[in-house]
Design a protein around this nucleic acid. Structure first.
Lengths: 186, 186
DNA sequence: CTAAAGCAAGTAACTAGTTAGTTGTCTTTT
DNA sequence: AAAAGACAACTAACTAGTTACTTGCTTTAG
């Protein structure tokens, strides 16, 4: 090992994350990433391959960190929604990256994400069987609605953002409360 | 062959809608739009200006048609969510265009959308004053959550889409029911 | 000395936007 | 009614700049 390639990789990854979050895959410029990372463009290709592959590396990195950070408890979905909300507030780029990913890589399936989803669905099913969670909805149905509510405040169109948003605490409270109502036993 | 600028404009708009929905602004190619519309590229610039302006025209056109089609009734938000769901199912490009718009035009504010939002917020407030709608949430809060629920099934990551979705009717039912629970008087 | 890290300088292909000119249609003049 | 003029619709070819990706060489650490 001659120089510190790990540090260079990390700088590239950071710069790429900011670039991709801002402009998406098609809109991002590899030159800009190289400049921001203070690294040579050829290194990007050497370490990460094509632009698409660089995006995948960035996305997997960020999303796994995200998934790791928010603990999933099927018997407390309101709490899970609240913690998800907190992370969306703390790392706004995550949701942007995810959205670009959905739009620009509709066929991509990251194994780690698939596994994480499967684990959550299984936990929901288990909680339902134990009678600790409503069975009015299937696991997929529950996960879908809980997620939508957790990110509801971050899906605003520019136009709605003109109206003054409630305080962060209030937004969080609403997310938690609406999930509580969702899973409340009728 | 008679010349008909209206028809040409319409063909360009249609082709541009498909292109932008698929690739976003940065990823779209004006040449591809011209080919698909069987129109010359220069006409696009003549009729619509720059690529960004073409996107705005496409977006305004589609979104206004969408907004016009779904009737808003503040005293029946579950019904409104259900009808929104129906339209997302019928015109899948609408949500894609909206998402590209949020990501790529964060500063854009289409007056028609602002007006439509204001009208909805006012109607919610009125329904609340009349006691025909819960006052547990502010108008903006209600609109935010109802919208998130209405589009919950269309926000899936590619990975979650691997799990088989319930039937359309069932998804709709869930959307309506979850909004009902949201607005239910505690 | 050597192997890997790093870089300047390319290149081929692409892309938004322009230009200068042609074709079809409607209006005016005789 | 027919020729002439006016004007809008339309087009092929182009420009100037950009972009992803590569090559061949230099530098550095062990």
């Amino acid at each position: 090992m001659a120089r510190d390639s790990e540090a260079t990789r990390a700088r590239i990854l950071d710069a790429a994350e900011a670039e991709f979050a801002a402009y998406g895959i098609a809109g991002s410029r590899v030159d800009r990433i190289a400049d921001a990372a203070q690294a040579n463009k050829a290194l990007i290709y050497k370490y990460f391959g094509t632009k698409d592959e660089l995006f995948d590396a960035v996305f997997a990195h960020r999303v796994l960190a995200f998934v790791d950070e928010v603990e999933f408890d099927a018997t407390d979905l309101p709490g899970y929604a609240g913690r998800s909300f907190d992370l969306y507030e703390r790392f706004p780029t995550t949701l942007r990256l995810t959205t670009w990913y959905q739009l620009e890589r509709p066929d991509g399936k990251l194994p780690a994400i698939v596994a994480s989803n499967d684990a959550k669905l299984a936990k929901i099913e288990e909680a339902q069987r134990a009678g600790r969670l409503t069975s009015a909805y299937s696991p997929l149905e529950l996960l879908t609605e809980v997620r939508a509510l957790a990110m509801s405040w971050h899906l605003h169109t520019p136009e709605l953002a003109l109206v003054r948003r409630p305080s962060r605490a209030r937004c969080r409270e609403i997310v938690v409360e609406s999930v509580r109502r969702l899973v409340a036993q009728a």
